[in-house]
Amino acid sequence: MFHIYKLPILAAALFLLATSVSVADERYSPIKDELVSKECGACHMAFQPEMLPKRSWKKIVGNLSDHFGEVVSLDAMTKEHIASYLQDNAADSGWWGGKFMRGIKNHMTPLRITETPHWIREHKGEVPSQLWSSPKVKSKANCIACHRRANRGDYDDD
């Protein structure tokens, strides 16, 4: 039996649900592989594989002699292990494409997370351009400078 006095309670419940969904919006599975954390996290934060499609990770790991201007030397086994982990957990690894697949056309293979449509949309208009070059941030790859829990996959603090 539905009573009208229950309406505010229902509305409040729906409101809480809606806000909790929007609050927990930018969460990604943290990296659970120790070797991946260590090797991919030595010079920059180890980025969560959910942020690029499989084909991007494949291309990145396939070209480590020129990794954004750096030479990365990994033995064949380590490389293979990392390549599998990244592709198994990529943005398009699930049955339902992840957020980072939005706007990426089939012919596109982005190599930088910061060039994906989702990343651009999320940062557009929100981050003043001079902040990127501040000494504390230094690089767009330095997620943790602003997202303090980025290494745990939590980017909800914006």
Binding site: M45, A141, I144
Partner: peptide, 9 residues
Amino acid sequence: KAGQTRAGK
């Protein structure tokens, strides 16, 4: 003191 990589880490 701590340093910082080119990627800001």
